[in-house]
Design a protein around this nucleic acid. Structure first.
Lengths: 207, 207, 207, 207
DNA sequence: CATGAATGAGTATTCATTCAT
DNA sequence: TATGAATGAATACTCATTCAT
């Protein structure tokens, strides 16, 4: 059918495909981010390695930090997509939470660069909080909160604790568990950590 | 007696007191370290805020990093003194270890800046390992090792595990537990963390 | 023909002309070099006098020394071109040597700044020997050597002396003779010096 | 006798003996001058090596250059004393000149540092010409001139050439001959050079 | 006579960013 | 869309020199 063929096509076109140079910059920057700190990456370096003109970085991303925020947003979008996909078809709040914990830790494990940046670099910049990325974290927070509420409504989770507090404990716990591994570059045993956290949380939290 | 009171006074003076400017630099640098990363602190900034001439930083501390190492050493000396004092009079290796864990975490809690620097910044600089501070850490490591060995000899600790491995697990555990709090500036529940770690370690380690 | 005249013109243009600022830097640096020593010329001074931004020096020439080496290379290229042109059409090794001596001294006389730098400054920098300029001197040395060898083969020059030793004596002699004039800025009597050197060398060297 | 004992004593006192620190600075500076260029010697370095307070350099010598001029003067005084001593008892202008040439070259050979400084460093500083050292060179020039004049009056030297021109050729010749050896640190064959110069000069100059 | 402290002007070099085309 | 040129504000660090005591 024509419609079927055109729709995705037009959708992609609406997202007007980024010019090649822009993509190269993005790619090269991600690569550099795995090798060194944001501060010690230079725009000259990015441009040279990407084979594009330095000024393009500023045309496309406004500033070096703009580039960082953009890349961070991209990552978080993928992160969200992944989480949502992973949760699809799972019934019951506690099962969802178990999956979410695992999936979140797994994402951290597979994207250490971003985890590190989020943890160590970004919070220093005041303008971060006006960032698209920051907006996305709010969406994620909401998503998690909804699952908790669902659990409360289902009667699985104690209703005498504020749902948002539980959410914070959950997310804080995940970060705490991942931190050492991310920082030191040491192994993250996703299954083990996920189990442990689920245990701890749900012993305190389940009815 | 007057004489008795004056002598120590004069003794202290012999250790010629640092010039005021030097102290100001030290102080201001510590302050800035609490606000921002080492790399983004500038010598100009230190000097200006401290109200001294920038060149004095280099006269007194050789380099910006020299200043860092100096401040780190100062801190670690106090750290060591505190630990040794805390251990004084405690009998039995396991009691000593319990105290040491607590004291170490407590120090981290009270000196977050230094903990942060140690954890995140300093290990990148190769010359760090020729630093007085690094030498002091060796002394501390030895001190902990000796307690473990004491435990083995007293028959409290399993002798089929290498003492130095136990020491490493112990110190690594402390760091892991403190990391999140330090990084985020969130609360560190010293008593809880210390108990937990002691438990974990000693369940695996005690005879 | 017009076409014939235009083509080389356009060919030259393909070697994209250096930006004006770059040329200004080059020019101003050469000028300063005539007034003062390399070490006491500052990049700020160069930029200010040339009316360009100081950072451009580094964009175009990497470093202050890079600028020096560049200018030296430029000079030496002209030097080589001149020598080769002067030797064109001359028959017989001894005639070539006579011409070469004269031409070399003459170049020194006309480019005292460079002679001075070569003699006094450059040999202190270890990285000089990885310089394009240094590579060019090797070419020149080879060129002179070949003439000597030609002389030996023609039977004009004694074959019991190593050709390269003769070359070294020749070039060393030229430098010695030029040195005082260059250093003091006093007159260099090219004809006289050339005759003298040719005499001395060839009395010892001819068959 | 008292008088005998007191006189030298008082004479020394008149020259009021320099304080030890001053002497140490002088000594250390001379030593450094043999190792590196004036510009790359720092006052801090001098003071530290000499074991004196840096500020003393300025008390005693006004400035870093002041120190240089002082040391140069000292050297020249010794130089003059040596020359005068060497000439003592020699009869006849031509014999005196022969000796003077030798003695001058010999001094250069034995004091390469000073020769080098005089040749390369000092002439750039405009204030040099208000220096005591510069005044001493005038004395030396006069001394040489007088010998030439003596030679003219004795009838040994042509009176149709200006005596001062002959003097200049003589002194210029000495410097020219010494220059390469001094600059390159290569050997100076005093006897040979002296003979050569004497020959050249006197073939053109003697009656 | 001697000293420790302090300083200002400078030093090459870096870098994110802007601009004209 | 792309580019080469240009720039200003920094950056850690140096050094001769002054000053109060």
């Amino acid at each position: 059918m024509r419609k079927d063929e055109e729709k995705p096509n037009s959708l992609i076109k609406k997202n007007k495909p980024y010019p090649e140079s822009r993509i190269k910059i993005d790619k090269e920057f991600r690569k550099l981010l795995e090798e060194k700190k944001f501060d010690s990456i230079t725009t000259a370096e990015i441009a040279k390695n990407a084979g594009v003109n330095e000024a393009l970085i500023f045309r496309y991303f406004k500033s070096k930090r703009g580039l960082l925020y953009h890349v961070l947003t991209e990552f978080f979008q993928e992160f969200l997509v992944k989480i949502v996909a992973d949760l699809k078809g799972i019934k019951g709040a506690s099962n969802k939470i178990r999956k979410l914990i695992w999936s979140h830790i797994n994402q951290h494990d597979n994207n250490r660069v971003f985890a590190k940046i989020l943890l160590l670099e970004v919070r220093n910049f005041p303008e971060y909080f006006e960032t698209e990325h920051y907006e996305l974290t709010k969406i994620y927070n909401k998503l998690v909160l909804d699952i908790i509420i669902e659990g409360v409504e289902e009667g699985q989770i104690r209703e005498d604790l504020s749902a948002s507090r539980i959410r914070n404990i959950l997310l804080g716990g995940i970060e705490n568990l991942c931190l050492p591994g991310i920082l030191r570059g040491s192994e993250i045993n996703t299954d083990l950590l996920a189990d442990e956290l689920y245990d701890v949380i749900f012993n305190g939290v389940l009815k």
